[in-house]
Nucleic acid binder design. Structure first.
Length: 467
RNA sequence: GGCAGGGUGGCUCAGUGGUACGGCGGAGGACUGCAAAUCCUUUAUUCGCGAGUUCGAUUCUCGCCCCUGCCUCCA
């Protein structure tokens, strides 16, 4: 079966057929870089990273574009508070963002355009909108999009203009012809960053940047546009209205929206203050735990974030690593299998092709893992299974460390003296050979006090750090 | 109120018109000097509630209840 994608625009799964054979263009709404990213942001990034990887796995040459919103009210406010230039703040946050993404094994997109570096494209698009009668300059000099002029407005989110208006609780802006109209270009206020334009000095509205940058990098019609569920309306609706009206292209053909991250069944968000930043979480949990946690639920469903949930994922990952350790400890010839070119099982391919069903893909990983352990226990060959496991885990970006590094605590736990532990293991095994179990247990207890757990296997004794 | 998406074992998470995938946890067993790890067995007559379609529904249709998101900046 070929790749099926749930398209928000159609409200059903559709077979993915790219605009250009062998190629795929994908735009994902990035972040407004005024602060560190939280787990909600991590989800979009990880979800679309897997989608990106899968499209490449299927052989597509993918042009993956993810923007940075680096001009915005919040950025200006935050920079003012800190007494620094907005650009200083955004540069700093982009660096932090990349550190988070690297930690989470998210591959870099093909392009990461910044809004401030695409002013010309935005101004061009706004000009086209005015020329074609879709936009107007308001009394106070802002350029606004005339929503009622665009016939298909509401198609993506399933909203009807009249119902929207009646349900509106927003203060009506008198300078707008219609309360639904949204800003394309704002007049500059003193002390704010501003760019020259045909409508005077000012800055772009939020929605226009995504329309302009996606079309600039991917063309007026492209394959995939993604983002969080909360962006469906009005952001994505407005993007469509702008782009289609301006250049007559179809804009994105497949719209993908990931579910939100909740805390206690409530959306994680800056405004509610119930968020955890990625770097905060990574102080406590390995990034693979967070990544696997995010892939453990289908991308369109909401997911509840908690330490307890991460703990459970950690236990599961440990088991995967136990298997990896067994394989790493094997003889040279078999060890090579671990790094041999991978191959994916039909079940895994089927799961991923079915709208990127990562929970099912993970189930396949656990089953393969169990199969390997069973065969190893029985002394049977495992080459096919190992190649499958390796291919699956590297595709999803989990179990990517050496097992020893994983169990020994990695770089963060420099206080662990491996040589000392190894020496004690030698002593203890000598005692065990002499059947001096009191001495052997004493050594094991001594290590246990320091959170070192020993495991006596057929191939010798290994150790790991307790959580 | 409108729109979108959900309610599956103790928890979590897939899925299917013919009695349900994985993970965590629980119980028993094998292995072990004892452990740990691993493996094996076991743990939902049942998929929010009611009705309908059907030989048969958790899966399709309708109604109801409950939850979340969006309708304002938000991944």
């Amino acid at each position: 079966m070929n790749l099926q994608i749930y398209n928000t625009l159609a409200r059903k799964k559709e077979e993915f057929t790219p605009l250009v054979k062998g190629k795929a263009g994908m735009y994902v709404c990035g972040v407004t870089i005024y602060d560190h990213c939280h787990v909600g942001h991590a989800r979009v990034m990880v979800v679309f990273d897997v989608i990106y990887r899968w499209l490449m796995q299927l052989g597509y040459e993918v042009n993956y574009v993810r923007n940075f919103t680096d001009v915005d009210d919040k950025i200006i406010k935050r920079a003012n508070e800190a007494g620094i230039e907005p650009k200083t703040l955004t540069d700093e946050m982009i660096t932090a963002f990349h550190m988070d993404m690297d930690a989470l094994y998210c591959l870099r997109p093909t392009h990461e355009p910044r809004a401030t570096l695409h002013m010309n494209e935005m101004i061009d698009m706004i000009t086209q909108l005015i020329d074609q009668g879709f936009a107007y300059v308001s009394d106070r000099g802002d350029v606004l999009y005339s929503v009622r002029k665009f016939e298909g407005y509401g198609q993506l989110s399933g909203k009807k203009i009249d119902e929207l208006e009646s349900g509106s609780r927003v203060d009506v802006d008198r300078s707008k012809d219609d309360p639904l109209d949204f800003v394309l270009w704002k007049q500059a206020k003193s002390g704010e960053p501003a760019w020259d334009s045909p409508w005077g000095s000012g800055r772009p509205g939020w929605h226009i940047e995504c329309s302009a940058m996606s079309c600039a990098h991917l063309g007026s019609t492209f394959d995939i546009h993604g983002g969080g569920m909360d962006l469906k309306f009005p952001h994505h609706e407005n993007e469509i209205a702008q782009a289609r009206a301006a250049n007559g292209g179809a804009f994105a053909r497949y719209w993908l929206h990931n579910g939100l991250v909740n805390i206690n069944a409530e959306k994680m968000s800056k405004s509610l203050g119930n968020f955890f930043t990625i770097c905060e979480v990574l102080k406590k949990y390995d990034s693979e735990v967070l990544r696997m946690f995010l892939l453990g639920t289908h991308y369109r469903s909401p997911v509840d974030f908690s330490d307890a949930a991460l703990d459970v994922v950690k236990v599961g990952l440990d088991r995967l690593y136990e298997t990896k350790r067994r394989l790493e400890q094997m003889k040279q010839t078999e060890q090579q299998l671990v790094t041999e070119k991978g191959l994916l099982s039909d079940a895994f391919v089927g799961a991923m092709n079915d709208d990127f069903n990562t929970p099912e893909a993970l189930a396949e990983i656990f089953q393969t893992c169990k199969e390997i352990n069973r065969k190893l226990d029985a002394g049977e060959g495992v080459s096919r299974q190992v190649r499958e496991l390796t291919a699956m885990t590297s595709l999803l970006g989990i179990v990517q460390k050496d097992a020893d590094a994983w169990f020994h605590g990695g770089a963060n736990n420099a206080e662990v003296d491996a040589a000392w532990i190894e020496a004690l293991i030698v002593d203890r095994n000598k005692a065990r050979t002499e059947r001096n179990f009191a001495r052997a247990d004493a050594i094991r207890d001594e290590l246990a006090v320091r959170d070192i757990i020993l495991e006596d296997g057929a191939d010798g004794t290994t150790w790991k750090k307790a959580d």
